[in-house]
Nucleic acid binder design. Structure first.
Lengths: 219, 219
DNA sequence: GAACAATGGATAGTGTCACTCTCCATTAAT
DNA sequence: ATTAATGGAGAGTGACACTATCCATTGTTC
């Protein structure tokens, strides 16, 4: 197919497709003449992946570039970790100002403690590790009255562990079709994030509405 | 205190503070002369809230404006729902193109079914409802091979319900100090979101690494 | 009370981001 | 042969979140 059809089938304007090619997110079509190129199903798939990461997950073009790079280069199938390398690129690197080192150290040890307690087989390079540290620092900073030590973090760990168990079923076979498994990991991580946050808000509403009326009456 | 001290104590540049005042996020100081104004602890608190919503939660200035407006105007204490009205402003309104109506209807009924099954006391105006619908549509669109009907959504509902129970303890008393409770609700919702997503990624890593090696060997 | 710094308010400018538009020399389609 | 479409390059756009500059006052210090 050519540009116009790729655009029509994907719903992405040609100008935007050209932009993605320039940015290295999408490989150029096979050039058949100085001003002609052919695109195929792979381009369509890639475009769909880009749009999902962009629109549904809200990742920046630069971040998507890193995720796709990792997906392209990390020899799928060699080791289960290939599934996590691309996901790790979804995060911004952690930068710590000199005067904040202590806060981050404390948060880091909190995370470590939670992981130990739950007996998780993860390390400091695992995706999410630095994000967790960053979040905890922010929580301490902006909600200083809230006690948010390892004991308070554990329920979060248990809840997401339960989630992970239901998301990744026992018969999930990453070795069967490594490319599909990788795509599934990246998209599953990204697309379900807003759903989880949305449902959590709903659960909060239910929880608050379930508070005994007496609590409200004494106002 | 005056501008310079407000800036020093909050760590926010004066130019930015002035910008927040212009945008209506921060009330102007009490003017004592044509070019003099006094700020107090409330300004400092508000500024901290704005920075938390901006930096840690990633909300836009416009969204923060709506959240703060709701916090200011929704007569705290009158009813438990006051805690949710400001949170609802954290979401973008749902806009549905004509050719997508069916997809959204289907997703909406999925959400309804999950809520019924879990017996949640929420309605379509509750914060998160539209977000959940939007997410499910995106999941269907970008992961069409994945079965994501009510049955598959239930584990998410159960996990966040468990979370909500641990987050909002039985002795949480929204009527005691309504303003503090409101601030706690908004910040708690926003600040813990990235933490949950980070821990979920870690749980995924653990889950994948726990996959029996045999699955990998047959590659 | 004179010199100098700081203030609040208004306005304009900056850098980033994700596109989007305009050209143009070809090439395809009719 | 005419008309439309193509790919590639570069410039332009609009939103966003600040940031910088002015300036007529006011505070502060000597």
């Amino acid at each position: 197919m050519r540009m116009a059809e790729l655009s029509r089938l994907s719903g992405v304007p040609t100008a935007t497709i050209k932009y993605y090619v320039r940015e290295g997110l999408l490989p150029a079509g096979e050039t058949t003449a100085p001003n002609q190129a052919r695109y195929d199903q792979q381009h369509l798939d890639r475009l769909s992946l880009i749009r999902a990461l962009r629109e549904a997950a809200g990742l920046s073009i630069a971040t998507i570039g890193r995720v796709l790079d990792a997906m392209d280069h990390d020899r799928p199938g060699a080791h289960p970790d290939y599934l996590t390398i691309a996901v790790a690129e979804m995060s911004e690197p952690l930068v710590v100002r000199d005067d904040e080192v202590d806060d981050y150290e404390r948060a880091r040890s909190d995370v470590r403690e939670v992981i130990d307690e739950l007996d998780w087989n993860v390390d400091q390079n695992s995706p999410g590790y630095d994000d967790a540290v960053r979040s905890i620092v922010a929580i301490h900073r902006y909600l200083p009255d809230l006690v948010a030590g390892p004991d308070e973090l554990l329920p979060y760990g248990r809840a997401v562990r339960q989630l992970a168990d239901s998301e990744i079923s026992d018969d999930f076979d990453p070795a069967g079709d490594p490319v599909a498994a990788l795509r599934f990991s990246v998209l599953g991580t990204a697309l379900f994030e807003p759903l989880i946050l949305a449902l959590r808000k709903l659960a909060h509403v239910d929880r608050i509405r379930s508070t005994p009326a007496a609590t409200w009456a004494k106002r």
